[in-house]
Nucleic acid binder design. Structure first.
Length: 443
RNA sequence: GUGCCUAUGGUGUAAUGGUUAACACAGCGGUUUGUGGUACCGCUAAUGAGGGUUCAAUUCCCUCUAGGCACCCCA
């Protein structure tokens, strides 16, 4: 019989079968954190009127090319794409908005009462090089609102994000900007190019190419030289058209009234093509490094039409995506997160001998159906091992059934804290347990 | 894709160019088999892979692999 395995030997042997780079298991001991965050988010978001939508992980590659945009790194270099046996080009979704919009159009949701508020959660995939807070499969919680252009919606969504985090004990900084509509952005990019042209020689090599391909991204370059140049650059806010400007001012106004602290950050431009007007990013308080962003979002008023939705009717929209793992990492670091991180129960059912063991089958089920939080370790034979497990589960009472109890039709009830025991008739178990658990909870 | 760093039981750490690689936690078992938490005892279990230098390598060097970090980009 194999007593103990050498894990190294095993992993060497199974080298080829180890988990794929950047793809992680979520182990049982971490599930408490995931459940905690998911449950909180879902319940809050539901009370804000969002409905859940579950979308396929695989979409036609074209969907992302058209929405996120060719020319973005996400689409050009980071998608897990392949051909199906039917020669269709498909990709693992690198983000959630595109699929949600696709579904919105495909199922005629434009006929629903507006605004249509949806939330999703699930894995996304990007072929990035893994590092702190970044994985190739990562989990997002996303919110999308369709059919409402009012700036109050922008403000509400941002406000809601702030609430989500504060409810799980994380304080955040919101960075916000407006990148205008297509028209004013075009105007601005022209101006920016003009300005950068003068300093073009001093830009880093990356920015040289950004200048041509994706001028806006020069704004959030990390190079000192570029930052200096950028600090003097024209800001998009000064080039917003009337409508965009009004919209943005209103958003800030609503946020101000809701006492949601925010920071104007003219350097936020977002890397995806579909954004317009309001864009924002959420950071843990005091930590504004790019890779620690907990979430980001913005308006995408033209995306529905661009993906083939109603051409006559406007479908303005806005959304946000939150990175689950980064959130959980923060919670795990916090000593006092208020999350119970191990399995617990109220009652443990222990047995000694074959007849008692058979009895426990039905007793356990009887108590469980009555709503008790009950546990067992039915494969064990020694009482010692069973009480040990009862202790690990921090149960209040252990029920012990052995030969004697079977014959007498009784049950031994042990108070795990005090160690005192009492023999009670089997048919009174429920009553006694209810009474005792109640009295404990009162105290 | 570019640069840098790391690799010792399941986990966290220690030590060494030379006898049996140490410690803690976890796991398993025991302290007379119908009693957990505390205590005591015992057991299991490691130098990522390959090559080189050397009488001798876990230690020094190279390659590979894996992991991490920063950049890029992003949640």
């Amino acid at each position: 019989m194999i007593m103990n395995l050498n894990l190294k030997e095993i992993t060497n042997r199974m080298q080829k079968f180890k988990s794929v780079k950047g793809f992680k298991d979520i182990l049982p001991e971490d599930q408490f954190y995931w459940d905690f965050v998911r449950n909180k988010f879902i319940s809050i978001v539901k009370s804000y009127g969002f409905e859940r939508i579950d979308l396929p992980i695989l979409e036609n590659s074209g969907l992302f090319v058209k929405s996120v945009g060719s020319g973005t790194d996400m689409v050009d270099k980071e998608m897990f794409s392949f051909e199906t046996l039917g020669k269709k080009k498909v990709s693992l979704r690198p983000e959630g908005t595109a699929g949600t919009v696709r579904s919105y159009i495909e199922h005629g949701m434009l006929n629903r009462r507006k605004p249509v508020k949806l939330f999703y959660l699930g894995p996304m995939f990007r072929y990035d090089r893994p590092q702190a807070g970044r994985y190739r499969q990562f989990h997002q919680f996303g919110l999308e609102i369709f059919g409402e252009s009012s700036p109050v919606i922008d403000a509400q969504l941002i406000f809601l994000c702030k609430q989500l985090f504060s409810e799980i004990g994380i304080e955040t900084d919101i960075h916000i900007n407006s990148i205008g509509c297509q028209d004013c952005r075009k105007e601005y990019i022209g101006q920016l190019k003009n300005y950068l042209k003068k300093n073009r020689k001093n830009l880093c090599p990356d920015c040289q190419s950004r200048y041509l391909k994706n001028t806006l991204r020069v704004l959030d370059c990390k190079e000192k030289g570029c930052q200096e140049i950028v600090s003097e650059a024209p800001q998009i806010i000064d080039y917003l058209c009337d409508d965009c400007n009004k919209h943005f001012v209103k958003v800030l106004e609503y946020l101000g009234d809701a006492e949601t602290a925010y920071q104007l950050n003219p350097l936020i431009v977002r890397g995806l093509d579909y954004y317009n007007r309001t864009v924002f990013e959420i950071f843990p308080k005091g930590n504004e490094k790019r890779q620690s962003a907990l979430g980001a979002g913005g308006r995408y008023d033209d995306l529905v039409r661009n993906l083939g939705g109603s051409q006559e009717e406007e479908t303005p929209a806005i959304g946000v995506a939150l990175g689950m793992k980064r959130i959980i990492n923060i919670l795990k670091k916090k000593e006092d997160s208020g999350i119970i991180t191990s399995r617990t129960s109220d009652i443990f059912v222990a047995q000694l001998g074959e007849r008692a063991r058979k009895k426990v089958f039905s007793l356990f089920e009887r108590l469980r159906r009555l709503g008790f939080d009950v546990a067992e370790d039915i494969s064990k034979t020694s009482l010692k091992q069973q009480l040990e497990e009862a202790n690990n589960l921090k149960v209040k009472f252990a029920l012990i059934i052995g030969q004697k109890e079977i014959l007498d039709k009784t049950i031994l009830i042990r108070d795990m804290e005090s160690g005192s025991q009492e023999i009670i008739p089997e048919d009174k178990v429920e009553k006694v347990l209810i009474k005792r658990l109640k009295s404990i909870k009162k105290v």
